[in-house]
């Protein structure tokens, strides 16, 4: 965003004020204040949003997080083959080869500190917000799917057909790649991601969301006191999602 566009924007706000009626005359002031407030409300690099999944509390066959995600983000099965439908979050059932130990856990975008999807994206559409949330800017995504090749977690989906029933706060459409946004539209309103809320409501409380950078947050305290792990920690991507009990 250049200064030039910014000036044009403020100029427009000024014109609003000059235009006339009493209400509009307030507009420039209101506008500037709301802009300043918006700045303060933006994503801050002091925060690192993260999640802790306690696999010992996660039940095999429970799909509450997946359903809640689909409702919140208006994700429906496509009309093509099941392999072509988007899945922002999925339940993985695991069985250890040697011992037969079974566990179940939700897998979604791990919101890496060093995201490979951001590295390979040719246009810069894959990006990481200051607060650690990895997103796709659909305005400049060209649908090359290189990020899907690069993601070690298979977290990304490609929209294979035209969509119509989007949530107004979660734009999605044909030809772009997408993945879990940590429900950024809810986080920016001070709410929890839909999956975490659903897991708690369901009585499992296997998912904990919070600021990894804030030592006083519950998630930071839990991570500091309990052994947790990152999936594919060998790749040293430092994911924001951690797992307990693997």
């Amino acid at each position: 965003m250049s200064d030039h566009t910014r000036r044009k924007f403020l100029g427009a706000a000024g014109l609003t004020g000059l235009a006339g009626s009493g209400l509009a005359a307030l507009a420039p002031g209101v506008h500037l204040i709301s802009l300043a407030a918006a700045h303060a409300n933006g994503a801050s690099s002091k925060v690192r949003w993260g999640m802790l999944v306690d696999t010992t509390r996660c039940a095999s066959g429970c799909n509450a997080c997946v359903t809640a995600c689909a409702t919140e983000n208006a994700i429906q099965p496509g009309t093509g083959r099941p392999a072509q439908s988007s899945q922002w979050i999925r339940k993985i059932e695991l069985n250890e080869f040697k011992t037969g130990r079974a566990l179940s856990l939700p897998m979604m975008c791990q919101h890496c500190e060093q995201p490979p999807c951001v590295d390979v994206c040719p246009t810069g559409a894959s990006f990481k917000r200051a607060d650690g949330i990895v997103l796709v800017d659909r305005h400049i995504c060209i649908g090359c799917r290189y990020c899907m090749m690069a993601c070690p977690y298979k977290a990304r989906s490609f929209v294979h057909e035209p969509l119509t029933e989007q949530n107004p706060e979660v734009p999605r459409g044909k030809g772009c790649v997408e993945s879990c946004t940590l429900c950024v539209q809810r986080i920016d309103k001070g709410q929890q991601p839909a999956c975490v809320e659903a897991c708690t409501k369901n009585g499992r409380s296997a998912m904990l969301f919070g600021d990894l950078n804030d030592p006083a947050s519950e998630i930071a305290k839990r991570i500091a006191t309990t052994p947790t792990s990152q999936v594919r920690a060998d790749l040293r991507l430092n994911p924001g999602v951690r797992y307990q009990g693997i």
Partner: peptide
């Protein structure tokens, strides 16, 4: 004349910087 510029400006602010509450 400029709604597309205004909206483009705002979309980048909202999406990339998480800034909400703008009028446009």
């Amino acid at each position: 004349r400029t709604h597309m510029d205004l909206l483009k400006h705002q979309r980048d602010k909202t999406l990339r910087y998480g800034e909400h509450g703008a009028k446009i």
